[in-house]
Simulated assay, not measured.
Amino acid sequence: MQCRSGCAACCIAPSISSPLPGLPLGKPAGVACPHLDAEWRCQLFGSPLRPRVCAEFQAEPAICGSHRDQALQIITLLEQSSTPE
């Protein structure tokens, strides 16, 4: 599966514990990565500054669903289920 243009659910819903440029402590869940442009594309794509977890993410139907809103819901639920209370 190829990433859907303009989706960016994987750059919004999950937390990222790796440091990012401008975010030395990572990114909280539910917050859009500051490196997304106006079309929801990653401005760090292909850069050595891009966190490894981002570079290794592979789009797949079980995570991305059939549209952006579904991807946001699925990834948010996965994030919530993996966060200890």
Rank of each mutant, 00 (worst) to 15 (best):
R41L: 13
P48T: 00
S17N: 13
C42W: 02
P19T: 04
A13N: 02
A9V: 00
P28H: 03
I74Q: 00
P24V: 04
W40A: 07
L20S: 12
G30S: 09
P34V: 09
A59C: 12
R50W: 06
I12P: 06
H67D: 15
C7L: 05
H67C: 11
A9R: 12
R52D: 15
V31K: 13
S82K: 08
L49Q: 13
W40C: 03
I63M: 12
L23T: 04
A29D: 04
H67S: 10
S82P: 00
A29I: 07
A32S: 15
M1V: 05
P24M: 07
G26N: 06
C10I: 05
A29K: 06
C54E: 01
I74G: 03
D69Q: 11
P84D: 10
W40Q: 07
E85Q: 06
P84M: 02
G30R: 06
D69R: 11
P28I: 01
F45M: 14
I16M: 14
L23S: 04
A9W: 06
K27N: 10
P34A: 08
C64S: 15
F45Q: 15
Q58N: 00
I75P: 08
R41P: 00
P34R: 13
W40Y: 07
S82R: 09
C54G: 01
C33E: 07
C42T: 07
E79N: 03
Q43S: 09
S47P: 04
R4Q: 11
V53Q: 02
P48H: 03
S66Q: 11
L20N: 01
R4I: 10
S15T: 07
S15P: 12
C11L: 11
E79D: 14
C54I: 02
C54Q: 00
L25P: 01
P51H: 09
V31E: 13
A55R: 15
A38K: 11
S82V: 05
I63D: 03
A32I: 05
C11P: 00
A32E: 05
Q2W: 12
P61R: 14
P19N: 12
P48R: 01
R52L: 14
E56G: 13
P48I: 05
I75E: 08
Q80H: 10
L77S: 07
P21A: 10
A71T: 02
D69P: 00
Q2I: 08
P84V: 02
M1T: 08
Q80F: 02
A13V: 10
G26Y: 09
Q43R: 15
Q80N: 10
G6F: 00
A62I: 04
C33R: 06
F57K: 00
Q73T: 02
G6C: 02
A32P: 09
L77M: 09
S82T: 06
M1F: 10
Q73M: 01
S17Y: 08
P24N: 09
